[in-house]
Lab assay of single mutants.
Amino acid sequence: GSSGLPPGWQSYLSPQGRRYYVNTTTNETTWERPSSS
């Protein structure tokens, strides 16, 4: 899909309704949208 996220990243919603991002390669999580640069 065209999520616009860098490879390996997925976006999720927290129980509070906030969006966060997870790097499935490194298990890093961040509130900031990852850049593909």
Rank of each mutant, 00 (worst) to 15 (best):
G1K: 04
G1R: 02
G1D: 14
G1M: 12
G1A: 12
G1E: 13
S2P: 13
S2D: 14
S2K: 08
S2I: 13
S2T: 12
S2Y: 10
S2H: 13
S2Q: 12
S3E: 14
S3K: 10
S3V: 12
S3G: 13
S3N: 13
S3H: 14
S3R: 09
G4L: 11
G4H: 11
G4T: 11
G4W: 13
G4R: 10
G4S: 11
L5D: 06
L5G: 03
L5Y: 03
L5S: 03
P6L: 07
P6D: 03
P6Y: 04
P6F: 03
P6S: 04
P7E: 10
P7R: 07
P7M: 08
P7A: 10
G8S: 05
G8Y: 07
G8D: 08
G8R: 03
G8V: 04
G8L: 04
G8I: 03
G8E: 07
W9A: 00
W9T: 01
W9L: 01
W9R: 00
W9P: 01
W9F: 03
W9H: 01
Q10A: 13
Q10L: 15
Q10M: 14
Q10F: 12
Q10R: 14
Q10W: 07
Q10P: 01
Q10E: 14
S11T: 13
S11R: 02
S11F: 05
S11G: 05
S11Q: 09
S11M: 14
S11Y: 05
Y12F: 15
Y12W: 06
Y12M: 09
Y12N: 04
Y12P: 01
Y12I: 06
Y12V: 08
L13N: 04
L13W: 10
L13R: 06
L13D: 05
L13F: 08
L13I: 12
S14Q: 01
S14D: 15
S14K: 01
S14H: 05
S14E: 04
S14I: 01
S14W: 00
S14G: 09
P15F: 05
P15I: 06
P15A: 09
P15G: 06
P15V: 07
P15S: 09
Q16H: 10
Q16D: 15
Q16E: 15
Q16I: 07
G17R: 02
G17K: 03
G17H: 02
G17P: 00
G17S: 01
G17A: 01
G17Y: 02
G17F: 03
G17D: 03
G17N: 04
R18S: 10
R18V: 15
R18K: 14
R18A: 09
R18E: 15
R18N: 14
R19N: 06
R19E: 15
R19H: 09
R19W: 15
R19Q: 08
R19A: 08
Y20Q: 02
Y20R: 01
Y20A: 03
Y20P: 01
Y20M: 05
Y20V: 06
Y20N: 00
Y21G: 00
Y21H: 00
Y21L: 00
Y21I: 00
Y21T: 00
Y21N: 00
Y21M: 00
V22D: 00
V22E: 02
V22T: 05
V22S: 03
V22Q: 05
N23V: 00
N23K: 03
N23G: 00
N23F: 06
T24V: 11
T24Q: 09
T24S: 09
T24W: 10
T24F: 08
T25L: 15
T25P: 01
T25K: 13
T25S: 12
T25I: 15
T25Y: 15
T25R: 10
T25H: 13
T26P: 00
T26V: 02
T26M: 03
T26Q: 02
T26G: 02
N27Q: 11
N27V: 01
N27K: 12
E28V: 08
E28D: 05
E28H: 06
E28R: 05
T29W: 15
T29D: 02
T29A: 10
T29I: 15
T29H: 12
T29L: 15
T29M: 15
T30E: 03
T30L: 07
T30N: 03
T30V: 10
W31M: 06
W31P: 04
W31Q: 04
W31N: 05
W31S: 06
E32A: 07
E32Y: 10
E32I: 14
E32S: 08
E32K: 11
E32P: 01
R33S: 06
R33D: 07
R33W: 10
R33Y: 12
R33E: 07
P34G: 01
P34K: 01
P34M: 02
P34C: 00
P34E: 02
P34R: 00
P34S: 01
P34I: 02
S35E: 11
S35P: 11
S35R: 09
S35K: 10
S35A: 11
S36I: 14
S36R: 07
S36Q: 11
S36E: 13
S36Y: 13
S36K: 09
S36N: 13
S36L: 14
S36T: 12
S37E: 13
S37N: 13
S37M: 11
S37W: 11
